[in-house]
């Protein structure tokens, strides 16, 4: 047995060494952390665009360059024209050939797009790739709009869009709201999930002036009826698809898990469009206004 173990270990070490040596070799298609476009960006406005990331697509359309987009990814659901374009699939796992087959002038990708190998290979093929900041906060949104506007050579339109977004957000903040405890629920796989502290939905809740009681959890987690009762939220935000899945707003209020929460008892249940709830894009101001307006109406 000892002999077998030793032999096994020797074999494993040998094979692992090969792996390690391979990683040290300066192979041309290894992972590179900084995948900023190495080729100079074309000066004239690019004619064929591939956009990877829902927010990126939305901004390209908002800047008036939507007609230039030839393909998007699975998560690009707004505006509706984007859903009619060919899709390259999941933006964190783009197929190289699929993207190249669209013969884009520029690939505009969210910073979360991947895998890094595919992005590197796309660049190695001589296609211009621009990664844009894609975090759920306002500075990132401004950055994103500016970066995209620069690539499209529509800087003026970019500044205008930023001003519009700021105006909407400021107007939203001027609307009075009482800070209440809130949470956002989505239904997935027949279960109710709550949005945790590191989600985009969390930012939407907080920007609306509410307090997300689920900041302690990460991502979307299953919320048991007990946990919901313990959390006792005063406001519940649900997505439109959740309401549909449960069979209407009245059914939502009758859900055993939700029925006894202060939110349902006082009638503070807000239905929010799915994309607005889960993305931090140019319509963030609109989302916040919507929530505050709904709260004001309920008073």
């Amino acid at each position: 047995m000892k002999v077998a173990l030793i032999r096994f270990l020797q074999l494993s070490v040998f094979v692992s060494l090969i792996f390690i040596l391979e990683s040290l070799a300066p192979a041309q298609a290894q992972l590179s952390e900084t995948v900023i476009a190495s080729a100079p960006a074309p000066v004239a406005a690019p004619k064929r665009l591939v956009t990877l990331g829902g927010s990126v697509t939305e901004i390209v359309y908002a800047l008036g360059a939507g007609h230039r987009v030839v393909a998007t990814d699975q998560s690009s659901l707004y505006p509706v024209q984007a859903t009619q374009l060919p899709s390259v699939g999941y933006y964190r796992r783009v197929p190289i050939e699929g993207v190249v087959a669209m013969r884009p002038d520029v690939v505009l990708a969210s910073s979360h797009a991947g895998p890094p190998l595919a992005l590197q290979q796309i660049q190695d093929l001589g296609i211009s790739l621009e990664l844009v900041s894609d975090e759920p906060n306002m500075p990132s949104l401004h950055n994103r709009i500016r970066q995209i506007a620069k690539v499209l050579n529509r800087q003026e339109a970019g500044e205008k869009l930023i001003d519009e977004v700021n105006q909407q957000v400021n107007a939203a903040h001027l609307m009075p709201v009482q800070s209440k405890s809130a949470l956002l629920l989505v239904m997935r796989g027949g279960k109710l999930l709550g949005a945790g502290g590191n989600t985009t939905a969390n930012v939407v809740i907080q920007q609306s002036g509410l307090h997300n009681v689920l900041t302690g959890i990460k991502s979307y987690q299953v919320i048991t009826p007990e946990a919901l009762s313990a959390a006792a939220p005063e406001v519940i935000i649900v997505t439109r698809s959740t309401v549909k899945a449960l069979g209407g707003l009245d059914q939502v209020k009758l859900e055993p898990a939700l029925r006894h929460t202060p939110a349902v008892k006082k009638g503070h249940v807000i239905v929010l469009d799915d994309l607005l709830a889960q993305g931090f894009g140019p319509r963030i101001g609109f989302a916040i206004q919507y929530i505050r307006q709904a709260l004001a109406n309920d008073e």
Binding site: Q28, A29, Q30, Y90, R92, R93, A118, Q121
Partner: peptide
């Protein structure tokens, strides 16, 4: 999603090295 895709297998990581 990464885990799901890994479990479904892919040849996309093929490079000459």
């Amino acid at each position: 999603r990464d885990i799901t895709f890994w479990n479904m297998g892919s040849l996309a990581g093929a490079t000459w090295p």
